[in-house]
């Protein structure tokens, strides 16, 4: 603090509290809405304080007893979301650790070509090439499957790029020392490189998990079988009724359930999250 200006300090705290309030407002209303019977909505008003149906609503939505337009219960879609998010995260980390390792620590013919083929994907999000990607996945007979949900979203170079940056900062003496001690490339990878990139891997894990969990367009397009629905995309199905018939209490329970895992990750691992965010976009 350079000078003491009590009034400005008050404005600072006030602005921040106001900001927090506005940011939290929709979640507050959603929480309140999730505790009322569906008859409480549509009467030209929405309840602003908690009702007594909380347990009932959350339980019936979670177990799939509430009508939702989807044939599988919410816990099952949550499982699908976890499988997809973890699949994308682990898959991306796996392929990008290996390819970054090859590109940084080996010299081989066509290394430059490999580099460019991989890095050109930095430029195109899946949303842009959605129709042809769908056709390719349909040709490979991977519609309505976990591999169809996961593999196309792994095709991105952000993680590879990041690991390449991280590996390039490692001192060359490390490899020399490892080689003098008789360690081969595989041993070097597992015993030196992996432990040294632990924090980077963890930070990236957090970001990728959120990215994977929140996928919407891709699952909407390639899943027609309810058994492969993810939680985030199921919201579309629940809203696909006449406007007056939307069961807001159930929709809000689903929305909140779909938010909880990634939000918990951000809050619980804030340090890693911030690091991952800054690294990934630098």
């Amino acid at each position: 603090m350079i000078e003491n200006r009590p009034w400005l300090t008050f404005v600072s705290h006030f602005s921040l509290l106001l900001g927090i309030g506005v940011v939290a407002l929709p979640v507050w209303v959603a929480l309140v809405a999730s505790t009322h019977p569906s008859s409480a909505f549509g009467a030209g008003e929405i309840p602003l304080w908690f009702g007594d149906q909380a347990l009932e609503n959350w339980r019936s939505v979670f177990l799939g007893e509430a009508s939702s337009g989807v044939d599988v219960p919410v816990w099952y879609m949550m499982l699908n979301s976890f499988i997809m998010a973890l699949g994308i995260t682990v898959g991306k980390l796996f392929i990008s650790l290996l390819s970054a390792y090859a590109i940084v620590f080996f010299r081989f013919p066509f290394r430059g070509a490999c580099f460019w083929v991989i890095f050109i994907t930095l430029m195109l999000p899946v949303e842009v090439r959605i129709v042809p990607t769908y056709e390719v996945v349909a040709n490979l007979d991977m519609l309505n499957s976990y591999s169809g949900l996961i593999l196309p979203l792994i095709a991105s170079a952000t993680a590879t790029f990041l690991f390449r940056q991280c590996f390039m900062t490692m001192p060359g003496e490390l490899i020399e020392a490892a080689r003098i001690d008789g360690a081969g490339p595989i041993r070097f990878f597992f015993d030196i490189l992996l432990p040294m990139s632990r924090t980077n891997i963890a930070a990236l894990f957090v970001i990728m998990f959120i990215y994977g969990w929140n996928q919407y367009l891709w699952p909407v397009i390639i899943t027609t079988d309810d058994a492969y629905y993810t939680l985030v995309m199921s919201i579309k199905r629940m809203l696909a009724v006449d406007q007056g018939d939307i069961e807001w209490n159930h929709v809000m329970v689903t929305t909140l359930l779909a938010m909880i895992p990634p939000v918990a990750v951000v809050i619980g691992m804030q340090k890693l999250f911030v690091k991952g965010l800054v690294d990934a976009e630098k």
Partner: peptide, 11 residues
């Protein structure tokens, strides 16, 4: 202030 980052755009 940072938690909304984790909320899916659709939600």
């Amino acid at each position: 202030l940072v938690w909304p980052y984790a909320v899916a755009p659709a939600l």
